[in-house]
């Protein structure tokens, strides 16, 4: 059962129980909705930008432990980062959860490294990346809900 503990690390379970930045930003200048039709996960990501810098970021919605913890930790990691830094971090995170060698070592994953176990569970990659795809849609100003399918 060690594989299971690799996936459901304590940090992930803790974020699932008490997600950070789980709120609406009423004055959000960017927001998008993301949907995973396979399991019904649905999140809204809110952003308030200061020029190119993410001044505030939050999310709301329902989903599995992996998708919720991923959304929660994403909001923690991205506050104060630039759009470009956010994009790079997503790239690095995507490599991590899909089990690819990182395209670049320059980006520090920090505590997002707890998601490394996801690469052993290919069907759960969509859960781990849903919030990030939604973030991208929000930054690009997409109006329609994005879907992982």
């Amino acid at each position: 059962m060690s594989d299971l503990r690799d996936l459901y690390q304590d940090v992930i379970l803790e974020h699932c129980k008490a997600p950070r930045n789980y709120r609406e930003i009423p004055a959000a200048d960017h927001k998008a909705e993301g949907f995973n039709p396979l399991c019904g996960d649905r999140f809204t990501v809110y952003l308030a930008l200061d020029g190119d810098v993410i001044r505030d970021i939050s999310f709301q919605g329902t989903g599995c432990a992996i998708s919720k913890a991923s959304a929660s930790m994403m909001t923690q990691m991205l506050k104060g980062k630039t759009r470009e830094e956010a994009e790079k971090l997503f790239g690095r995170f995507h490599d991590l959860v899909t089990g690819h060698a990182p395209a670049s070592e320059e980006v520090e994953l920090g505590k997002l490294a707890v998601f490394s176990g996801v690469s052993e569970f290919p069907v759960r990659v969509k859960c781990a990346t849903l919030a990030w795809h939604t973030l991208q849609a929000a930054l690009e100003g997409k109006q329609e809900a994005i879907s992982t399918e």
Partner: peptide, 22 residues
Amino acid sequence: DVHPHDIGTILDQQGIAIRTGH
């Protein structure tokens, strides 16, 4: 309040196949 998808993954690790979702 465990999401069914998490239930499905944990059961699968024990060789138990169920369906999760809508």
